[in-house]
Amino acid sequence: MVEQLEKAIDFQPVAEVKHLDFYYSGFHAIKNVNFDIPEKKVTALIGPSGCGKTTLLRCFNRMHDLYPGNRYQGGILVNGVNILAKEVDPIEVRMRISMVFQKPNPFPKSIFENVAYGLRIRGENSRTVLDEKVEDALKSAALWEEAKDRLNQSAYDLSGGQQQRLCIARALVTEPEIVLFDEPTSALDPIATNSIEELMSGLKQKVTILIVTHSMQQAARFSDYTAFMYMGELIEFDKTETIFSQPAQKRTQDYLSGRIG
């Protein structure tokens, strides 16, 4: 089924955000945002808390559909298709664009079953296929060496950093085009943070990464592009070096120098 969709849709790993507005009931959380997500690069979303960066990220896999009262306007075009359109099935979107959350949230199942879950709900039950893909995903998430001898143990026996890498493996196993990261290291200690960051820089050869981070150092360290958001608006989007060395906007400058946020 995965292959079928892939061939049929011919999903190019690039997304264009066009005139995107988003409302929580009456609250206008995202205001006319426009930018393109480059292919196989790391794009960071930064900004003070409450600026709408996580809200924007969650538009990409239609997570807002889960709760009543949310409304999108405008679009996110993926291969020319507006994935926010009513006719587009949010479940298909989530099958192509996966997500890693702020706090590690493995399922209370075995390590193996956590990673295999995405394949299982796509109807994949062949043990050889599952074994092979789970191994690949755990390798991509740099967890294979630590986990290979305890695949049947509970995911909760892993440390926090390992759990987050497990969640990354879970997000990678279905070979998505885009992986969304929502402050993936905010609940981790510096050593675990470091290993996750290394992992993410390595991943961009394979997938497009969109990451929300509250740490400017993190954005500067390994993202290729950075988008700065403030009060629901996209203030500036550019190459990361440009944003951090010579931002075009005053508000970006103020944020980077610690005057707002």
Binding site: N61, M63, I91, M95, F101, K103, Y117, A171, T174
Partner: peptide, 27 residues
């Protein structure tokens, strides 16, 4: 059951019933 587990499953492309059957009921 914490909402983060529901979101994790939905984010993988699970349907509502899959979330119930694979996660909420077993847990």
């Amino acid at each position: 059951i914490p909402n983060s587990l529901r979101e994790a499953a939905y984010a993988m492309g699970a349907t509502k019933w899959q979330v119930v059957q694979d996660h909420l009921l077993p847990y």
